[in-house]
Simulated assay, not measured.
Amino acid sequence: MHLKITGQHLDLTEALKNYVNEKIGGVDQYFDNVIDAEVVLRQEKFRNSIEVTLFAAGQTLHAEAEDKDMYAAIDAASDKLERQVVRYKEKLTNHHPHHNLDKTQVTEL
């Protein structure tokens, strides 16, 4: 997965980049078809926000989070994204069994 990290009004430190890479890159354990991910970190006065857009095969997932602490915002966005990926994967693999009804079981009114 190719991860693009940008910062607006924020100095991107190596520690911050590594933390984002660890948290957002962890989505690969749930879903193998992830192609790219774009992460935008913003700092505005006392508010830190993160936007994550994940491009998978045939699907685009998006998560946003805000917090006073940047690391807490990254954790929240990561949790949201993981829930979306798990739900999407379940949707792909969840096949309800089709019940074949015999003509003897069908009653006419």
Rank of each mutant, 00 (worst) to 15 (best):
M1P: 01
H2Q: 13
L3D: 01
L3K: 07
T6V: 08
Q8D: 06
H9L: 02
H9T: 11
L10G: 03
L10N: 02
L12W: 01
T13I: 04
L16D: 03
L16E: 03
K17W: 00
K17C: 05
K17V: 11
Y19E: 12
V20P: 15
V20Q: 07
V20G: 11
V20E: 02
V20T: 15
I24K: 12
G26T: 13
D28R: 11
Q29L: 13
Y30M: 05
F31M: 14
N33M: 06
I35A: 06
A37E: 09
E38F: 07
V39P: 14
V40S: 04
L41G: 05
L41N: 07
R42L: 04
K45G: 03
F46N: 12
R47K: 13
S49P: 14
E51G: 08
E51A: 10
V52D: 02
V52M: 00
V52W: 00
T53V: 12
L54C: 09
L54S: 01
L54D: 00
A57V: 13
G58R: 03
G58I: 11
G58T: 10
G58L: 07
T60I: 10
A63L: 06
A63N: 08
E64N: 12
A65P: 15
E66N: 11
K68T: 04
D69T: 01
D69Y: 02
D69S: 09
M70H: 10
M70K: 05
M70N: 09
Y71F: 12
Y71M: 08
A73K: 04
I74L: 03
I74G: 10
D75C: 03
A76L: 12
A77F: 06
S78C: 03
S78P: 15
D79K: 06
D79P: 15
K80M: 05
L81V: 05
E82Q: 13
E82S: 05
V85Q: 00
V86L: 04
R87P: 00
Y88H: 08
Y88D: 13
Y88E: 14
K91C: 01
N94F: 04
N94Q: 10
H95M: 11
H95Q: 12
H96C: 04
D102C: 05
D102A: 14
K103W: 15
K103R: 08
T104M: 13
T104L: 13
Q105L: 13
Q105T: 15
V106H: 03
E108V: 10
L109M: 09
